[in-house]
């Protein structure tokens, strides 16, 4: 019983790790954003579950009730949710621009294109003399 009373934190940790895993392991940028929002929700759960008191009611004052849950986490999370959607929208806008610029939203494609562009830039800058080196680099890859 002693340890089981902490189950809310474990749910939060599991949710947070699911979100974290999606963010670092998946290549698709939209999926990364979904992962971020799961991560975000886990933090919301952390705050809200800390504010809960067993047997209490929602913090809307009324003569019938004595015990209320803590209103402070509610306030913080309420604003955080709306800020979260605003930032998600910003992220989505960035994803849209990336799609327009690179033609893909897979991280690997983007990095490959970037590496390719870099090589071309080097070729232009140093002229044909550095051609051999960059050819070797390409072979290495």
């Amino acid at each position: 019983m002693n340890i089981l009373g902490l189950y809310n934190y474990w749910i939060v940790v599991v949710l947070m790790l699911i979100g974290f895993y999606i963010v670092i392991a998946h290549e698709n940028l939209i999926k990364k954003l979904v992962g971020l929002s799961i991560f975000q929700t886990s933090v919301f759960f952390f705050y809200i579950s800390m504010g809960k008191i067993t047997g209490a009611t929602a913090p809307i004052l009324d003569e019938k009730y004595e015990l209320y849950s803590n209103p402070l986490p509610h306030v913080l999370i309420l604003t955080a949710i709306v800020v979260g959607i605003a930032t998600t929208a910003l992220g989505l806008a960035l994803v849209v621009r990336i799609q327009e610029a690179y033609g893909s939203i897979e991280e690997r494609d983007i990095q490959e294109q970037d590496a390719h562009d870099q090589l071309e830039c080097q070729l232009e800058a140093y002229g044909p003399s550095s051609m051999e080196i960059s050819d070797e680099q390409e072979q290495d890859e």
Binding site: F44, I48, S49, G51, K52, A56, T57, A58, P59, I60, Y68, S69, P73, H74, I77, L78, I81, V82, G84, I85
Partner: peptide, 13 residues
């Protein structure tokens, strides 16, 4: 978890 306002926001947002 008694957070009616938060639930409301989460549902709509």
């Amino acid at each position: 978890l008694d957070a009616v306002d938060v639930a409301f926001t989460e549902a709509s947002v």
